[in-house]
Design a binder for these strands. Structure first.
Length: 288
DNA sequence: ACACAGGCCGAAT
DNA sequence: ATTCGGCCTGTG
């Protein structure tokens, strides 16, 4: 459970007891998740209605996990990645909050992203008491639509303030086109996301994967880039492979393509596994 | 001081 | 189609 919530895919679930219990909100629902034993969780909510169905979707329980593991276990490198990251689950997030989260994530860092999201919740979310704790829901699009760009700037969003402001007005333009299915019409939907000011390839892939559940996506950030250049572009000289600067190596576009070739329909899981593994064991990048 | 952080935009190849 | 400089802000 700690792997799932601390990998940096979802930013507003917190633990106060070193990973035994996690609290978070999804829309107006507060969720409490307790690790009962190695295999089972106890989950409570301020809204028990259809909670089981809700959680099955949230944790993507219908994904064939063992089949996924086999499929991405393509070589010794991935086997060691799996050894480190196995147990991690992809979370199916609420699309609006997910989109805001990843627009804010660019050229930032996880603590700062969390702080920015918390600013939005604290100022514009709904206060809910549950289990003797206070929670703030993530605001809806309507809650944020009237907020001036300057306010976002005052939260320290920097140039992302303009992106968020713009996104709030653009949001229905791609959401309401229900004729476009995020999974069936994957490429069209992804390009539509990228047309929004402030959303490029990486952020679009994250929103598409985590918010709209397209497991075929393989978001390429600097860490994935380092890993892929190190292990899956063998034509590089040793000197180039060891180069860790962002600008060196294959472009993000080619790396994403390669990731999708290698891992196919489970590319999204492979990406999160790799990300978790190198962030928690940087030594992976040194080893042969 | 200065590089860097889960990148993107716009202009110049 | 691809590459490169600049960018808000906080942290070490």
């Amino acid at each position: 459970m700690q792997k799932t919530f601390e990998v940096g895919q979802i930013f507003r679930f917190h633990s106060h007891d070193e990973g035994k219990t996690y609290y978070g909100t999804i829309k107006e629902r507060v969720i409490k998740i307790v690790q009962k034993d190695a295999k089972s969780l106890i989950i409570q909510s301020n809204n028990e209605k259809e909670l089981k169905t809700f959680l099955d979707e949230f944790f993507r329980v219908t994904d064939d996990y063992s089949s996924m593991i086999k499929h991405i276990s393509i070589d010794p490198v991935m086997k060691s990645v799996i050894e480190i990251a196995e147990g991690l689950r992809l979370i199916q997030q609420e699309p609006f909050e997910c989109s805001i989260s990843y627009i804010l994530s660019q050229n930032s860092n996880i603590p700062r992203i969390k702080h920015h999201l918390e600013q939005l919740a604290l100022n514009f979310g709904k206060k809910i008491e549950f289990d003797n704790r206070t929670f703030y829901t993530f605001p809806s699009r309507d809650d944020l639509l009237k907020i001036p760009e300057e306010t976002f700037r005052s939260f320290g969003f920097g140039y992302r303030a303009a992106y968020i402001y713009q996104f709030l007005h653009d949001y229905p333009n791609f959401l309401d086109s229900k004729s476009i299915d995020p999974i069936q019409d994957s490429e069209i939907f992804n390009l539509k996301l990228q047309k929004i000011h402030g959303i490029g390839q990486k952020v679009a892939d994250c929103i598409h994967l985590f918010g709209y559940g397209d497991l075929n996506r393989f978001p390429t950030d600097v860490w994935i880039k380092r890993f892929m250049n190190r292990f899956y572009f063998h034509e590089f000289s040793e000197n180039e492979k060891n180069e860790k600067s962002v600008r060196s190596g294959k472009s993000a576009k080619k790396i994403t393509q390669r990731g999708q070739e290698l891992f196919g329909k489970w590319a999204g899981y492979a990406q999160e596994f790799i990300y978790y593994a190198i962030r928690n064991n940087p030594h992976l990048l040194d080893s042969t």
